[in-house]
Amino acid sequence: MSVILEFKDFGFRYTGNKEFTVRDINFRIRHGEFVMLSGPSGGGKTTLARAMVGLIPHFYMGEMEGSVLIDGVSTKNKEVKEISRTIGYVFQNPDNQIFMTTVIRDVAFRLEFMDLPKEEMINRVRYILDKLGIADLMYRRVETLSGGEKQKVAIAGVLVAQPKVLILDEPTAYLSPKSALGLMKLLDRLNKELGITIILIDHRMDLAIQYVKRMIVLYNGRIVLDASTKDALETALDKLYGINIPTISRLYHIFKRWGYNPPSPIIEAEDLSRYILKEVVKA
């Protein structure tokens, strides 16, 4: 697949800071990937997200090195509005994203600059709400929604503009376990059915482990790991700075240290249990 997003020797120092927040950033993301961008707080994740959507260099003041290319064109030569048609950004807190009174008005907001006929706008909103399984919320008032529902409305508001890439900044932080799991399944579907490239910023791996194919880890503003999820959990645990490692993967490594050889750090709990019964406690 072709490259949709590329960082080339990228670095950024915010005005007023002495140090660069991120530096020597090089990676490419291809159409249809499902990537997790991770690392401890303050590592530079949000700065990279801002660069992906063009807020750096167009909105945040500072010194930028290198370049960020979207479909081969530097973000320096694109307006934020133009970039937002390719790259959708979902904020951590849906309350910062939703600002109209009803679901339909909020989701339609992004279409209002596109000069679409009203009928077409409503159809598009309905299509996306339907895809997200929240068609019944269309005419609801925003303040009556639960946290999980708000999160989906926020995502609908971004998806309605039909971006090719969806960036989500810690989307599960405030969701209930059920809603968080539902969101991961939804992202997986958007990725598989609509081919949307997903970039998930998070430091929790437990929910995403089955879906995320690649891990990029930022630490102190540098990329310290860029590997498949399996390789990351198998051989690079020491580079997963600040990340909450799934329990199963932690057990995998403890058994390894004890001299056993469990099949994979990404394994269903039942399979690990069976392995323990067979090899470890020899029941």
């Binding site: 709990a269 069976r274 323990i276």
Partner: peptide
């Protein structure tokens, strides 16, 4: 109640079912 058990439970439960441990264990 809309929650899921801690993930260690899924691993420890079969050991409990077989009587190898006295009760299901909730943390690593």
């Amino acid at each position: 109640s809309g929650l899921y058990p801690p993930s260690v439970i899924d691993v420890s439960r079969p050991l409990f079912d077989k009587g190898i441990i006295k009760k299901p264990i909730i943390n690593i």
